[in-house]
Design a protein around this nucleic acid. Sequence first.
RNA 1: GGUGCCGUAGCCAAGUGGUAAGGCAGAGGUCUGCAAAACCUUUAUUCGACGGUUCGAAUCCGUCCGGCACCUCCA
Length: 499
Amino acid sequence: MPLRVYNTLTQSKEDFAPIDAPKVGMYVCGPTVYSASHIGHMVGPVIFDTVKRYLTYLGYKVTWVVNITDVDDKLIVQANKDGTSVKDLAESVTADYIRCLEALNVTGIDHMPRATDNIGQIVTMTEGLVKKGYAYASGGDVYFDVSRDDDYGKLSHRDPEELKSGARIEPSALKKHPGDFALWKGSKPGEPAWESPYGPGRPGWHIECSAMSQRYLGPSFDIHGGGLDLVFPHHENELAQSESHNAKPFVKYWMHNGLLTKNGRKISKSDPDTIVLMKDLLEKFDPDVIRGLLLSSHYRSPIDFGNSRLEEIGRGLKAFRNLFERFARVSGLSFYTLAAPTKVGDFGTDGSDFLEQVAEHRRVFLDAMDDDFNTGAALAELYELVRTLNRFADQHGLEGAARPDQAEPQALARDQWILGMVVLRELTLILGLFEAPPAAATSANDALASELMDLILHLRAELRKAKNFALADQIRDRLTALRIVLEDRPGGQTTWKRD
RNA sequence: GGUGCCGUAGCCAAGUGGUAAGGCAGAGGUCUGCAAAACCUUUAUUCGACGGUUCGAAUCCGUCCGGCACCUCCA
């Protein structure tokens, strides 16, 4: 099944065929860095990181660009409020943003250009648009003239004439048409400013993306992503600028992710109650759980966000972590260092029913990803794969004490099981989940704790041997209260971990 | 007013013509000294409502009801 992608421009799913395969250029709008990252800022990065992972898995060579808007009216206002400079504010917020991306295992970004590092390209593009008659200078500003662009509105499926009647667009005596938007804004004294043929000023909001995407990906590229709220006006205007300037198609596939809501309300800067800071979230939750929530439904759907949702996802994902621990007990190997294929290929089942089932789960997973990156369905199939793996381990007693007389058949089953685990590794890596052990300590964090636990477990084993279950259970209960979970396994072994 | 999206079990959610994935929560069971983990069984005759098309509809069409987003800064 070929990969199909929903394109906002055509409002339909299309077969994915890059302009210059195997190369794929992908640009996703990043944040305006004037306040700390909240969960909403992470949706796009996590989704497009997963998109890049899957495209790479399919053999494409993806170049992914995320811009940082580090000059803007909001930064100026906030910096003044904080008594700091726009530059310092931008740097500290950008650092916070990058920390959050790393925490959520967003590893695929190749370039993160800052608007202020690209003023030259922005001015050049503005000049070009003026020369071609698509833009005009007015009172120190430069505006894009939407009436000169005959297909303006094609992305958001709007009629520019409707914009005139809608009184919600900022009216300005400087603009010819209410839909016209600034490419360049003349600066007031004390504001950050760069020289231009139109006087000192700073870029408008949309032009930086046109300039930077062109710099890194060329005038035409494959995927442009962002939140659904950016379709209009931001992406519409980017498209208008770039195509007017370059006289070439700008973007082949426009992908827009759904927005997060909290208790039914959109998470938005203008609604402070809805803001959930990443800083707070990362203190309370395993990053894989946060990533898991964002991938648990289709990327174009809205996700209603609440702590209870994260807890629910966390309880579900525990099954994976438990299986990885079981894997370590059975094989002595760490799931997190397991070498798995990084490119799609055939999976040989060698006539084994079990491996046949594994292959089927893998196929369903990949089909789901091929269908416009249906991570919700793909993740669901992973649960099925986990069940299949656990069932096989149960049936073949892989955890039972090894009996010399059945060493051979058990070794074969164990090898097949490991092959199944490799497939699970292969697929979780596509989603960017469980790449590393949980960040929070699940075992002893120092030698003393480790020795004390050994001691406690040893004494408890003696109590159980002596059938003193009351005391043995008391030890287990008291440890549970300390968030240390004991699991007595067949064969007399007891394992422990922090919850 | 214009443009788009959504309504599937107690909750979350996949499914766009062939007879309802998966997760959480709940119930019963296997294993266990008891737990935990794991596994098994079970929980929607039905997909907002009503019509229509079809051999067949959650899926297509129409109408209505309810919710949301964008049109203003937002990921």
